[in-house]
Design a binder for these strands. Structure first.
Length: 110
DNA sequence: TATTTGACCAAGA
DNA sequence: ATCTTGGCCAAAT
């Protein structure tokens, strides 16, 4: 199935896309929204907040559009630790080498 | 049905 | 650089 444009609920599309972010990379709330063809940045954050229940979904890899860490249900310390475990360095609340490790979703087809 | 609430964002001051 | 403001939109009230 394709989470872009699909008839799934908004939150399922968000979670599906999030699950595709590779280890050691990050994406952003804005990028997820863009991949789905919407500007619902805040709703993307809400969907991730409501659904961290699935350890299957690496929601710690979704950060703010400006390279800041962004939110996390269990706190920014935990989010930073999970990222560090994958080789992503967070210093002073910012993702190091942000542009370099930023993962963007293919815009059309796959 | 209407209002409120956010793990957001961009532009101003 | 930090803070405020207005805008965004799905979900939960």
């Amino acid at each position: 199935m394709n989470p872009l444009r699909s008839k799934h609920s908004f939150s399922v599309r968000v979670l599906t896309l999030t699950s595709r972010i590779p280890r050691g990379r990050v994406s952003t709330y804005r990028e997820l929204a863009r991949a789905m063809g919407t500007k619902a940045y805040r709703a993307v954050g809400n969907a991730l907040h409501a659904n961290p229940h699935a350890p299957r979904i690496p929601c710690h890899r979704v950060v703010s559009a400006d390279g800041r860490l962004g939110g996390y249900g269990r706190g920014p310390k935990v989010k930073a630790a999970l990222l560090k475990r994958e080789g992503v360095v967070v210093r002073a609340g910012r993702i190091m080498q942000f542009q370099r490790i930023l993962f963007c979703f293919p815009s059309r087809r796959g």
